[in-house]
Amino acid sequence: MTTTEQIAREAVRRVLGDAAHADVTTFPGGNLSISVHSGDHTATIDGDDSSGWGWTVDPGTDDGFTGHEDVAATLDDALIGIRGRFGA
């Protein structure tokens, strides 16, 4: 299964709840960049199903090009990790 923009939005809603808002960008190669906002927190997730998902919670302004703090094999695993950091 390939994670599409719609599948990513549904996963964010399912794992983080209706209060979470996701902005999803799909790139020509099929990888996604997802920005999730919930309450006072923000997370960024980048990746695809074949290479995995890198994610960072509450990135600093100087973190834009330094990569991600954490990596997960699946988008759901990344979202579960984010949920733990959001305190949800």
Results as ranks from 00 to 15, higher is better:
T3S: 05
D70C: 15
G64A: 15
A73M: 01
L32Q: 08
V36R: 09
W55H: 10
L16G: 04
H41K: 12
A78C: 15
G60M: 10
T2Q: 10
R9N: 00
H68M: 12
T26L: 01
G81T: 11
G47F: 00
T2D: 07
G87Y: 09
G39N: 13
T3H: 06
T4S: 10
E69R: 04
R14E: 15
T2E: 10
T4E: 09
V36Y: 05
T4I: 14
V36S: 02
D62M: 12
T61M: 14
T44G: 04
A19K: 13
N31T: 02
I82L: 07
G29A: 06
F65R: 08
T2N: 08
W55N: 11
D76R: 07
A43G: 02
D40N: 10
G39M: 12
I7H: 13
R9Q: 04
G54Q: 03
I82S: 04
F27S: 03
F27C: 02
A22M: 12
T2Y: 00
G47W: 01
G84A: 05
Q6F: 09
L32S: 03
F86V: 10
W53Y: 15
T2V: 15
S38T: 06
I7T: 14
N31M: 03
G60H: 06
D63W: 12
E10P: 02
I82K: 05
D40P: 08
P28A: 01
P28I: 01
G81R: 03
M1Q: 05
D46L: 09
Q6A: 15
R9V: 00
S33Q: 12
I34Q: 08
D70M: 10
E10T: 09
A20R: 12
T56A: 02
Q6R: 13
T56V: 10
D46S: 13
E69D: 15
V71S: 08
T4A: 01
I45G: 08
P28W: 00
S33I: 04
G29N: 05
I34F: 09
G17Y: 06
E10N: 14
A78G: 11
H41F: 06
D70S: 14
G84C: 08
T42G: 05
L16F: 04
T44L: 14
T74R: 07
D70L: 10
R14Q: 12
E5H: 04
A43N: 04
R85D: 10
F86D: 09
R14K: 13
E5T: 07
A20N: 11
G54M: 11
